[in-house]
Design a protein around this nucleic acid. Structure first.
Length: 558
RNA sequence: CGGGGCGUAGCGCAGUUUGGUAGCGCGCACGGUUCGGGACCGUGAGGUCGGAGGUUCAAAUCCUCUCGCCCCGACCA
């Protein structure tokens, strides 16, 4: 492509409402434009990147036997009603009616529709397994679109679905996808890891996420460098370091107006880990007291797995239900249902005394209070790995892909069944597997940039090479550039030639911003010696090469 | 959905406190000089001051309502 003909609107200054690096750079380098909150236009450069990623996705999907199809994004409500998700999902689903008042929604994902297809077409175990995939638009009315392209309301996803006759088949397809995903993200030049994850609204029991470390990410994962344990902090298990607990006698302490763990621990000159924190929540079955150690945070999702959905109690409710002001509540002498974190099992702690302006010191599990024991704290850096007791690291990450074992949740609901070898009717066993190409692109930028702009991994760069003839008024420069341009294209090397009548400085700045991995600079003086400069965008290293040897040189440096 | 911030030329911003009829830098167009890291000089185009209503002789500026965008949190296949 010729730069002069291609629409690449670069910006010297970043629009004020962009914050994430990938967002700023994609805007500045002319890859995307924002239409509205969470809606992005991909400009020619941006679309080329997505196409490169898609090509890798297709290759790797085909390599594990997945077959590409394409599904509508407008879905009749009935199918979503049959699986229950029409009612389960709230405002995140775009809903609409057709002219005859029939309910529809815009697809957030395609489990329902894929399963519907399977239910109509698959009869026998002989038809299985099947793996179908598509690269298709999804729509979700996100509560909070953010970080440019990272969290949008409309986005493209590669989603695949496996259909098997038995669990072994599902395990196989799950494993094949995990392997394909490793190849995909490696080929895209990302640093990433596979972690255990919470299946969430997908249902089913078993899932992993693929995470690319980046400060721009929205998720956090806990990692053990020793045994390799890694999980989203949403479900990561950990053992908080044991706290030093002197063998206090049980006694009340006057703590006037000291309510928070911080206030009381400063007042009593103790560590937060010497405290027992009591949090009142309201569940559907009534109030529940959640107990965690003072230096830990309550994990609402973990708690929800024990007591179901719940909300924190308001200050007035605490007073009404427990008869004492928040800040002085504790487990001692309470009849209420209590869920306590494992870290409180051993040792003596300080908690609220259930008496205004008093705390109680030296309370012990089982002796002074009883509770149901669960892991309900948020894993944090420094906690010990629950399997090998090594301190955990916590890292911020971008979710770039996920894989789920769905089981029969959707096939049962939609009657996607087959007859097995014995003529028995059984629900198909399913898995679903997603990758967000735009997130791959954003993560690649977040992981590869410098002060001058983007540094694309070669595999997903919009072009392989940028040809930069500096002086378009010099016939020799233009002639050589045109010749090289032709030659590169004959060699199937994607080349962008900056043939604009611009000053050298502008071309250099734009080239660095856009981030094509290799730059070939044609300067008037070096050209007189028959040389051009080949420059690496990432390392800034430059070598002078004879014009005739450019192709050979490019081929020699992968 | 809760909290905070911001809407003035294509982009970045000033002007709003104290009401007097809109300005700077970049970009854009034209002419000239320049030409290996976002050139310089000159001329010029471009604005419903997010929108609606109100107060006032007069509103970008004050009041009310409303829309949009960003950030934090809640939420999140």
């Amino acid at each position: 492509m010729r730069f002069s003909k291609m629409f690449i609107p670069t910006l010297r200054e970043a629009p004020a409402d962009a914050e994430a690096i990938s967002h700023i750079l994609m805007l500045r380098a002319g890859y995307v434009r924002q239409l509205a909150a969470g809606l992005y236009i991909f400009l020619p450069l941006g679309w080329r990147v997505l196409n490169k990623i898609d090509a890798i996705l297709k290759e790797e999907m085909e390599s594990i036997g997945a077959q590409e199809i394409s599904m509508p994004i407008l879905h009749p409500a009935e199918i979503w009603q049959q699986t229950g998700r029409w009612d389960m999902i709230g405002g995140e689903m775009f809903r609409l009616k057709d002219r005859t008042d029939r309910d529809f929604c815009l697809g957030m994902t395609h489990e329902e529709i894929m399963t519907w297809l399977a239910s109509r077409e698959i009869r026998s175990y002989r038809d299985l397994p099947q793996v179908w995939y598509q690269i298709q638009t999804k729509l979700r009315d996100e509560a909070r679109p953010k970080s440019g392209i990272l969290r949008t309301r409309e986005f493209i996803m590669k989603d695949s679905y496996s259909f098997d006759a038995d669990d072994a088949g599902l395990d196989k397809n799950y494993e094949l996808h995990a392997e394909a995903y490793h190849r995909i993200f490696s080929r895209c030049g990302l640093r990433f890891m596979q972690v255990e994850s919470d299946p969430g609204m997908m249902g089913g029991g078993y899932s992993h996420e693929f995470m690319a470390p980046s400060p721009a990410g929205e998720d956090e994962i806990a990692l053990c460098d020793h045994c390799g344990y890694s999980a989203n902090v949403e479900l990561a298990l950990s053992t908080p370091l044991a706290s030093e607990t002197p063998d206090w006698p049980c006694e009340e302490v006057h703590t006037p107006d000291k309510r928070t763990v911080k206030e009381v621990s400063n007042f009593m000159k103790l560590q937060p880990s010497n405290f027992l924190k009591s949090i009142l929540v309201i569940s559907e079955q009534g109030p529940v007291l959640a107990l965690v150690r003072g230096d830990q945070e309550l994990h609402e999702k973990k708690l929800a797995k024990v007591i179901g959905s719940h909300r924190p109690a308001q200050k007035i409710e605490v007073k009404e239900i427990l008869g004492v002001e928040a800040g002085f509540i504790g487990p001692v002498g309470r009849e209420i249902r209590m869920i306590a974190d494992h870290s409180l099992k051993q040792g003596a702690f300080v908690s609220g005394a259930n008496k205004q302006h008093y705390h109680i010191k030296g309370i012990r599990a089982e002796k002074d209070f009883t509770a149901e024991w669960h892991d309900i704290h948020i894993a944090k850096a420094g906690d010990l790995c629950s399997s090998c007791s090594t301190p955990l690291r916590v890292e911020r990450v971008i979710e770039i892909g996920n894989i789920f074992k769905l089981g029969t949740k959707y096939s049962s609901a939609l009657k996607a069944v087959f007859l097995d070898e014995n003529g028995q009717e059984k629900p198909i066993i399913m898995g679903s597997y997603g990758i967000g190409p735009a997130r791959i692109a954003a993560a690649a930028i977040e992981q590869n940039f410098d002060k001058d702009g983007i540094i694309w991994p070669k595999s997903i760069a919009p072009f392989d090479v940028e040809l930069i003839p500096l002086n378009m008024n010099d016939p020799k420069t233009v002639e050589t550039a045109e010749a090289l341009y032709r030659e590169l294209r004959l060699e199937k090397i994607d080349v962008l030639m900056d043939d604009r009548e611009e000053r050298a400085g502008v071309k250099f700045k734009d080239a660095d911003l856009i981030g094509i991995p290799t730059q070939i600079v044609l300067g008037e003086k070096t050209l007189k010696e028959g040389l051009v400069e080949i420059k690496d965008r990432k390392t800034k290293e430059m070598v002078k090469v004879k014009v005739e040897e450019v192709i050979a040189h490019l081929k020699a440096t992968p």
